[in-house]
């Protein structure tokens, strides 16, 4: 079934028609690219190439990827491209902004180092992918990278994209539905898929007070990182987000079926 879906997506790579829907398996996840515009076929090709470039450059599962060599302190000048420098700078910015709740420099990485920028790279690379599509003239599309979403424009003329926020215990149910149009990012951090893998940098221990944290705002680069940070901060993260980033909204689900949210979450929620 998996292969069948991939083939269906690959077919759409080479055909020009009204709207296309492609699923690419890259960076250890499924990236769903849902374009509702007519586009030249090389637009999607370029996005797919970009995602594989990101995987090869920033995977901490590949021992000799540039980012692994950076983390292990054996990077050459070639590894430290301007782009890699940009990612490292993003990690520093987010560490300082979150008071260390998001800290890519202390989390153990699969390559044995203590530098894992994966929490930044995913959102950042999807925002870049969105920019590529926009450069090709796309105005209505939605990219879902393993549950983290960057959307543009509308799903249908005059209608916003409807985004379900998965219920922590029920994979096929939404705990809430939000509507997004023009430009919006939705990122969710939770432990129900990969276990307690979110590490509190201050203790080095996994955090598990919350069932899931969803952040909504203009840029997936930051929404994704804020989701991780708020997950570590716990409910107090709501206060942090409201104070520092009022253009982002948060929706938290606790282990006791209670949801907490910032008041501006109501601006997005439709169900």
């Amino acid at each position: 079934m998996n292969a069948q879906m991939t083939n269906a997506g690959r077919d759409s790579l080479t055909q020009s028609r009204r709207g296309r829907h492609h699923v690419e398996f890259v960076m250890g996840m499924a990236v769903s690219i849902d374009i509702r515009d007519d586009l030249p076929s090389d637009a999607l090709d370029e996005v797919v190439q970009w995602l594989h470039h990101v995987d090869a450059t920033y995977s901490t599962y590949i021992p000799d990827s540039p980012i692994s060599r950076v983390g292990l302190g054996i990077a050459s000048a070639e590894d430290m491209t301007r782009e890699v420098g940009e990612v490292v700078a993003l990690c520093e910015e987010l560490r300082d902004d979150t008071g260390g709740a998001f800290d890519a420099f202390v989390v153990p990485a699969p390559n044995g180092s203590h530098f894992d920028p994966s929490g930044v790279v995913k959102g950042w690379s999807i925002e870049r992918a969105a920019t590529i599509l926009e450069r090709h003239g796309a105005t209505n599309f939605c990219i879902n990278a393993g549950g983290d979403i960057a959307l543009r424009g509308h799903a249908r003329p005059g209608e916003p994209w409807l985004v379900g926020i998965r219920h922590p215990d029920l994979p096929d149910r939404s705990a809430a539905v939000v509507a997004g149009a023009d430009r919006l990012a939705i990122a969710t951090s939770a432990t129900y898929e990969r276990g307690a893998h979110i590490i509190d940098p201050s203790t080095g221990e996994p955090t598990a007070d919350l069932a899931s944290v969803t952040i909504i705002g203009p840029d997936l680069t930051y929404a994704d990182a804020y989701a991780t940070a708020v997950f570590v901060m716990g409910p107090d993260g709501l206060n942090w987000l409201t104070r520092r980033h009022p253009d982002y909204a948060a929706f938290l689900i606790t282990r006791r079926d209670t949801a907490l949210s910032t008041s501006n979450f109501a601006d997005h929620r439709v169900s």
């Binding site: 996840m29 939605c142 879902n144 994209w161 379900g164 539905v177 990122a187 209670t258 907490l260 910032t262």
Partner: peptide
């Protein structure tokens, strides 16, 4: 600015008819 709600209550009103789903990385 925060508003606690009950997830299970809202759940009964959810529709699966969405364009996409946000969740933990599967």
């Amino acid at each position: 600015r925060a508003t606690p709600t009950l997830v299970s209550e809202a759940l009964s009103a959810q529709s699966a008819n969405v364009d996409t789903v946000s969740g933990a990385t599967y």
